[in-house]
Amino acid sequence: MARLTINGQVRTVEVDPDTPLLWVIREQVGLTGTKFGCGIAQCGACTVHVDGVATRSCVLPVGAVEESQKIVTIEGLSPDSSHPLQKAWLALDVPQCGYCQSGMIMAAAALLEQTPSPTDADISAEITNICRCGTYNRVRAAIKQAAGETQAG
C-alpha cells in the first residue's frame, strides 16, 4: 500500500512498491494527463513535480515516494488552465498532436520556479523532452512569454 499526496489530496493505493509512479498516477489514481512515452526517462512525457522538482515518473518506484512529498501533475498545475505557461501555450497555439505537451509544460513550470528569467541556454539545457511533431520553437517562445508575464506581474 502507498500513501501519496497528489495535487493536494492524500491518496491511498494498493500497489506493488516497485510500480513506477507514472502507472500509479495513470491507472490507480486515474489522472491520465501524465503520459507514457518511453518508460526509460528519455522522452519526458511523464514529467510531474515531486516537491517542485521536474521528475520523470516512469522510472520512479512508488515505494520511494513519501506521503510528505508533494506530487503535482498537469491536472494540478492550475485549477483552470490559468498558469502563465498554460496561458502562453494557448496564446501561441503551441501544441500539435499534444501528447508530449503535459510533460513539456510541467518541465517548463519547474524551470520557471527555479529560474524565473531563463536564457535560451537555460531552456535548451533544462527542457530535454522529446516532441516528434516539432513544437520546440513555440515551446521556447511560450516559456519566454510566460517568464515575461510572471516578471511583469
Binding site: R26, G30, L31, T32, G33, T34, K35, F36, T73, I74, E75, L77, S78, S81, Q86, W89, L90, D93, V94, P95, G98, Y99, Q101, S102, I105
Partner: peptide, 21 residues
Amino acid sequence: LARLDTADKLNGRQVYGADLS
C-alpha cells in the same frame, strides 16, 4: 485562425487512446 483543439491539450483533459478507461 487559432486551432480548435488546443485548450484540452494544456491541462491533461485531452483523452488519447492510451488514456481510455
